[in-house]
Computed example of a mutant assay.
Amino acid sequence: MDATLEQIGPRLRAARRDRGWTLEELATRAGMSSSTLSRLESGKRQASLPLLLPLTRQLGIRLDDLVPAGSGDPRVRRAIERRDGMVIAPLTLENSPVQAFKVTFPPRDHAPAPRVHDGYEWLFVLSGRLRLSLDDHEHIIERGEAAEFDTRMPHSLSATADGSAEVVSIFSASGERMHTHGAP
């Protein structure tokens, strides 16, 4: 049997035990016999959608939760983007639940116009000084400092006039789309 499929039974058992349910309790809730559930958990019965769907619904989990993620190449090999003088280097895989980037902002005399969009952002200044205009207030974030904010507030980011700034930014999915792909 495929090693991935061998994980289904133990993961199913763990989910049941996490809820403090016995075999009988889950089997009754899912409309199957205790022996069928026992054989599924021990790997003695092949898993099928008609068996797994009622179990996952009762457990409040997804089918994906029963199958381990592939352990492909963990290295991030996404292209660096250059836009509006910024250098944007991806630090996470494209399908990660959150996105992280190292962004180098060029020096600017003035803050760009603020924008508003769905999302949330966390940032850490690696070098230089970052100007964060947030809801009509200007904050200078120095090297070694961090900030977080709701991107539904009017905001803009830029380096100060005295030099570029390198920043690690972590975005929620909607914030990532806006900052790395530009305004719609």
Rank of each mutant, 00 (worst) to 15 (best):
P97F: 09
E148K: 11
P114T: 14
P106I: 10
D2F: 10
E41G: 03
P90H: 03
H179L: 11
G60I: 08
R16L: 03
A113S: 14
T92R: 07
D118Y: 04
Q46V: 11
M178V: 10
G9Q: 04
G85T: 05
T56G: 02
V103I: 10
T180D: 06
M32W: 04
E121I: 07
P97R: 13
D109P: 13
A47G: 03
D150W: 09
T104I: 10
A183T: 14
G144T: 05
M1P: 12
I170R: 03
S169W: 10
R83P: 00
A79W: 10
H181E: 15
A15L: 03
I61L: 09
E138R: 09
E166S: 13
E94I: 12
R108I: 00
P50L: 05
G128V: 11
R39Q: 15
S35T: 07
M178W: 12
D64C: 12
D18V: 08
L157Q: 05
H155G: 03
T56Q: 07
G85Y: 05
G175T: 04
S33G: 04
A79H: 14
V168L: 04
H110V: 15
E6R: 15
S174Y: 00
A3K: 12
R143V: 13
G70P: 06
I61P: 08
M1V: 15
K102L: 15
P154M: 02
T151G: 02
E176A: 15
T56I: 11
T180C: 09
T160Y: 09
A183V: 13
K44L: 09
S158F: 04
R131I: 07
A14W: 00
L51V: 01
R75K: 08
A161S: 13
I61C: 01
A173K: 13
V167F: 07
F105T: 02
G70M: 06
M1G: 14
D109I: 03
G119W: 01
G85F: 06
G175M: 00
R131H: 10
R115C: 10
P184L: 06
A173N: 12
F105V: 03
R19L: 04
P184K: 07
R19D: 00
E81F: 06
R45P: 02
G144S: 08
I170M: 11
E6I: 10
P50M: 07
F124A: 13
